[in-house]
């Protein structure tokens, strides 16, 4: 049995997903490639969003891919870290904002 759930070499095999379902696989990759093309947002901005989201979903493949992608685009490590803090702030905020629910409940039940 393989010793780890994640193998860096598997990232390069992502395209093979299509082998077991050509139609959906191709549709996905076509969509994926279109998403990252320059539009109202630049490719650079999209790369930073992808990096931040990668950390939110904690996907090691994505983190590997979009850190490398950022470096190739000349994105600095300071910019990358700032993007991550946006992700962390939203994640942390999402927990904390539910505190309002807790407070509501406490206020309702307590004498």
């Amino acid at each position: 049995m393989q010793k780890t759930y994640y193998d860096p070499a598997d990232l390069k095999k992502f395209g093979k997903i299509s082998e077991w379902n050509e139609e959906l696989g191709s549709k996905f990759f076509e969509y994926y490639n279109s998403v990252f093309m320059e539009g109202n947002l630049s490719e650079r901005e999209k790369s930073l969003i992808a990096l931040a989201v990668s950390h939110t979903i904690q996907c090691p493949y994505c983190i590997d891919a979009y850190t490398g992608d950022g470096l190739q685009r000349g994105i600095t490590k300071e910019e990358m870290m700032e993007a991550l803090h946006v992700a962390a702030a939203i994640r942390g905020g999402a927990s904390l904002v539910h505190g309002v629910q807790m407070m509501n409940k406490v206020n309702k039940l307590e004498m």
Binding site: E43, R44, G68, D69, L71, Q72, R73, G74
Partner: peptide, 18 residues
């Protein structure tokens, strides 16, 4: 421009713009 590390340069046109 050449990359400052163990990675390949990105798209030349985009880098020139930046």
């Amino acid at each position: 421009y050449n990359p400052s590390g163990a990675f390949l340069p990105g798209n030349q046109v985009a880098l020139e713009k930046d």
